[in-house]
Design a protein around this nucleic acid. Sequence first.
DNA 1: ATTCTAATGCAACAATGTTGCAAAAGTAAT
DNA 2: ATTACTTTTGCAACATTGTTGCATTAGAAT
Lengths: 125, 125
Amino acid sequence: MKTARNTAAKTEIQDLIVTSNVALSHSEIQKSLDGLCDRVTIYRVLERLLEEGTIHKIVNVDGVVKYAGCHSCSKKHSHNHIHFSCQKCKAVTCLEDVEPSYKLPKNYKVSEMNFTLSGLCPQCL
Amino acid sequence: MKTARNTAAKTEIQDLIVTSNVALSHSEIQKSLDGLCDRVTIYRVLERLLEEGTIHKIVNVDGVVKYAGCHSCSKKHSHNHIHFSCQKCKAVTCLEDVEPSYKLPKNYKVSEMNFTLSGLCPQCL
DNA sequence: ATTCTAATGCAACAATGTTGCAAAAGTAAT
DNA sequence: ATTACTTTTGCAACATTGTTGCATTAGAAT
């Protein structure tokens, strides 16, 4: 059977994402790592961290994919919270406590949600 | 001053998007046009249609950019409606009547929202 | 230390989007 | 209809993002 291994790349990337208070993109991670490992390795590590449930993936309003640590969802792994994307400082943050409500027409079965608001964050306001 | 022109490409692309009841991606549009114009031209026409306010842009949960006609927003141009992305038939539709509610922490200024639910649409349920 | 195989690096590729520039084609005026 | 003006297009080239195959490296268990 398949056993995961702890490698320098994985440890470092995981640390970066979980420690950060904003979601990070692949290129931002790459810059931070500063040549520690290959571009491709970053993609593969992110894939593994997603599978493990250590991080989650956010597609920003501009289509840029970002990754953030899973904090509140350690027990039940759900991501039904809002993300906020600041148009000025470009930071994407998880508003873990905000759950939106809505009323769908009949016969839709929802299994996932992706809700991102953009505007100005408290720091930039 | 700059005056827009009606060209075959623009007319055709606009027609495609506005007529369609699902949002279309660049590649889907390209396939439909079947060589009517260059790939780059499609990008540029889409840009113009967005500026004009004829269409709006949706970033799907998988990061794929799609375009849909503006129907309900002819008067006040707002896109505060939910989009639904079917995991089976891959159709992305605008649920124009559904406006979500949520309660943000203090000091956030929202100027745009992007809300996409995914799951199964009525046709695929 | 040995063995097994997960993880990495590298090269190559695919998809998506952007830019510069010369040629083509709308539009308005004559 | 012809001319003049300038938007729009096509093409080539490029940038970015993400994926895949394969040989090599290096965790982890024995």
